[in-house]
Every structure is written in C-alpha cells, then in structure tokens.
C-alpha cells in the first residue's frame, strides 16, 4: 500500500515514535507493519537512530519551553524545584498528547493534567 491511506498510517507511526521516550523501537516495530508499502519501510530503515532520538528530545524540549512561556506558575515551579518540575513534565509529556503549539493552550492542558492527577507544585 503506497496510497494516501498508507501515508496516514505511516504518519501515525512517526507521531507515536517522536512523542515517546525512545523513538527507535517504534520505528523498528513500524517496519513490521504489513500495511506499509516496501518504499515506506525502506524510508523508516534509513533513519539515523541518534538523529531520531535527538528529534524526539527536541520535540519535548520545545514543549517544555512552550509551557514555561505560557505559564508563569510553571516557570516559578521550575525555578524553585527544577528536578521536581522536570519529573512532572516528563510524566505530562508521556501522558498528554501535544495538541497545540500555543503557550497558553499548553498551560491549560498542563493545569488540567495536574488537577486530574491531584499534583500540586512544590511550595516555596
């Protein structure tokens, strides 16, 4: 299958990989997908594992920066407790789909996740 539908499926694999903690195993798994054409499997095989991991890291880094730009509370939490905030962000990034490029919308997503999980920022 080398159709727009196959490309949509391919895109879902890439998205899953790039928001995961390690994209390389998902790229390997995608190459076993019987619904992907050989050309798309070859494309996956061409990817440099270090480059993939760096890209996933940059996706998370940009989200982190977006959140801190959009939320002064998040920024203050990070200043007070970088380790605690970073760990919370890691969980957030793993559990909440990144649906926005807007700092203020990212803030709302983060605050909703904190409330749902009952997590409170460490006090001063």
């Amino acid at each position: 299958m080398d159709s727009p539908e196959a490309h949509r499926r391919f895109e879902v694999w890439i998205a899953d990989a790039l928001v995961s903690r390690d994209p390389v195993p998902l790229f390997e798994k995608a190459r076993e997908d019987p619904d992907l054409a050989p050309a798309l499997k070859e494309a996956l095989a061409a990817a440099d594992p270090d480059g993939l991991r760096l890209t996933a890291l940059l996706v998370a880094k940009l989200r982190f920066e977006r959140l801190v730009r959009g939320s002064s509370n998040a920024g203050e939490w990070f200043d007070r407790d970088p380790r605690g905030f970073t760990e919370a962000f890691r969980r957030y990034h793993a559990e909440v789909v990144p649906t926005t490029s807007e700092p203020r919308a990212e803030k709302r997503l983060f605050e909703a996740w904190l409330a749902e999980r009952g997590i409170q920022a460490a006090g001063p």
Binding site: H7, F10, A15, D16, L18, A39, L40
Partner: peptide
C-alpha cells in the same frame, strides 16, 4: 516536512518519505 503529525504538534519540521504521494501532498 511536517510540524503536525496525526494531530500532534511536534512543532519542528520532521522529514517526509520521498515518495510521489508525499510530493503531491
């Protein structure tokens, strides 16, 4: 490239497969 994949905002351009379908898109 793509900065949105399956509705997810990756926000940095990521590469496309070099297929005729991708070129057409």
């Amino acid at each position: 490239g793509a900065t949105v994949l399956d509705g997810r905002a990756v926000t940095i351009p990521v590469p496309l497969p070099m297929t005729s379908e991708a070129a057409a898109a």
